[in-house]
């Protein structure tokens, strides 16, 4: 049954905007972008825009993977802790070993954490919200133990900075890495069997199982990707500032989640997209940037973010209800 009564006003909109889930974030993003370009002189400058992308690269990488998690019907709150732990471990390792091996160690650690998450959720059937929340405490504790609460400095090892700070065609490598991850994950979700199976597992796990899909394996893969993405983000940020701390990443999971949801990916699972997530994250980033450039009290920034998130979740719930 669909209560299309509420939808009748849609008739007055141009067709492309009738389904907000498809167009959704693009319109507000465009409006915000244009507004900022007009109201703030420095906004449109290349340095400012590249700066935003550089700062957001870690979040975008995690959010792209997070979209896969949400689509497959789960949630990953442990990304912040994984981000911090992988950054620390990789940085610590880099002090005595080559940069490449340090990156590999960091990524492997993220993958491991993700797979453990996946196994807890998919095999032991523990609700992913609780499972990954618990895991984030465990990982956070491990991080504090390894670093003994200290900041790990990489001033002795400036090569580590090359991971994120090299430039190619005038754009920093952190951005290139981010674009690469987004393209790969976007492709994974829309064009591969794994992506299709994630959508199916999140949309109707029972039906997916009967269609011969290994739902548990698919969930584990999604968590593995999420863990790796968090680790990569941690490594990139450690490389950007040549230091790492276990204290970082406290609110990261929520920032990421906000971006994904604002981008229009359903928290109910079964649908969503990587590229819309990118716009969701950037939308939030632009608001921050705009508040800075226009010199508005940061207090309002927080309030604005909260309201936007509520609107996004509200629209999602409304969309879900409409479908009944």
């Amino acid at each position: 049954m669909s209560t299309d009564t509420a939808k009748s006003w849609n008739r007055y909109l141009p067709p492309a905007l009738r389904s907000w889930r498809d167009a959704g974030i693009i319109l507000p993003f465009a409006i915000l972008f244009v507004t900022l370009s007009i109201t703030s002189q420095p906004f449109l400058r290349k340095t400012n825009l590249l700066n935003i992308l550089d700062q957001q690269s870690a979040i975008l990488i995690i959010a792209a993977a997070g979209a896969l998690i949400l689509v497959s019907g789960a949630i990953d709150l442990s990304v912040g802790a994984t981000y911090a732990l992988a950054g620390c471990v990789s940085a610590q390792y880099a002090i005595k070993h080559s940069v490449l091996s340090a990156v590999i160690v960091g990524l492997a650690l993220g993958l491991l954490v993700g797979i453990v998450n996946g196994i807890i959720v998919a095999i032991f059937k523990i609700n992913s919200l609780i499972a990954t929340l618990a895991m984030s405490f465990v990982i956070g504790g491990l991080g504090a133990k390894i670093t003994k609460g200290n900041l790990i400095m990489l001033t002795e090892k400036p090569e580590y900075g090359k991971i994120a700070q090299s430039t190619w065609l005038g754009v920093s490598s952190s951005i290139w890495l981010m674009v690469g991850v987004i393209v790969v994950l976007g492709f994974l979700l829309t064009r591969t069997t794994t992506g299709r199976y994630m959508i199916a597992s999140g949309g109707n796990a029972q039906a997916a199982r009967l269609a011969g899909i290994r739902v548990s394996l698919i969930r584990i893969i999604a968590f593995g990707i999420s863990g790796m993405a968090a680790a990569l983000a941690g490594i990139i940020d450690a490389s950007r500032v040549l230091s790492a701390s276990a204290q970082l990443g406290g609110t990261l999971a929520f920032t990421v989640l906000a971006g994904i949801v604002v981008g229009g990916t359903s928290i109910a699972g079964g649908q969503g997209s990587v590229w819309r997530t990118v716009f969701g994250v950037l939308f939030i980033a632009l608001i921050g940037n705009g508040f800075d450039l226009l010199g508005i009290d940061p207090l309002y920034h927080q309030i604005a973010l909260g309201l936007i998130l509520l609107v996004a979740v509200g629209l999602d719930a409304w969309g879900n209800n409409k479908r009944r």
Binding site: G203, N204, A207, A208, L210, G270, Q271, R323
Partner: peptide, 8 residues
């Protein structure tokens, strides 16, 4: 319940 992905 057992068959379709209704939203796809």
């Amino acid at each position: 319940e057992l068959g379709l992905l209704l939203e796809r």
